[in-house]
Simulated scan of single mutants.
Amino acid sequence: MQAQPLIAVADVEAASRWYQAVLGCHGTHGGTDYEQLAFDGRIILQLHRWDAQHHAHVGDPACRPYGNGVLLWFWTDDFDDAVDRAAANGAKVVDGPKENRNAQHRELWLNDPDGYVVVIAGPYGDVGM
Rank of each mutant, 00 (worst) to 15 (best):
I7C: 11
I7R: 04
V9P: 12
V9N: 12
A10D: 14
A10R: 14
D11C: 07
V12G: 10
E13G: 00
A14Q: 14
A14C: 02
A15V: 03
A15H: 01
S16M: 07
S16D: 01
R17T: 13
W18C: 12
Y19I: 08
G24Q: 04
G24C: 08
C25M: 02
G27W: 00
H29E: 09
G31Q: 09
T32A: 14
T32R: 14
E35D: 15
E35A: 15
L37C: 12
L37E: 09
L37N: 12
F39I: 09
R42Y: 14
I44H: 08
Q46L: 14
D51T: 11
H55T: 00
H55L: 10
H55C: 03
V58K: 08
V58H: 07
V58L: 15
D60L: 08
C63T: 10
R64G: 00
Y66S: 08
G67Y: 05
N68W: 02
G69S: 09
L72Q: 06
W73K: 00
T76C: 04
D77G: 12
F79K: 11
F79I: 10
D80N: 08
D81S: 10
A82T: 00
V83N: 07
V83H: 05
D84F: 01
D84L: 07
R85C: 07
A86R: 04
A86Q: 04
A86I: 04
A87K: 14
A88Q: 14
A88L: 05
N89A: 11
G90D: 10
A91C: 10
G96H: 05
G96E: 08
P97L: 01
K98F: 12
E99F: 00
Q104S: 14
H105C: 14
R106E: 01
L108Y: 01
L108Q: 03
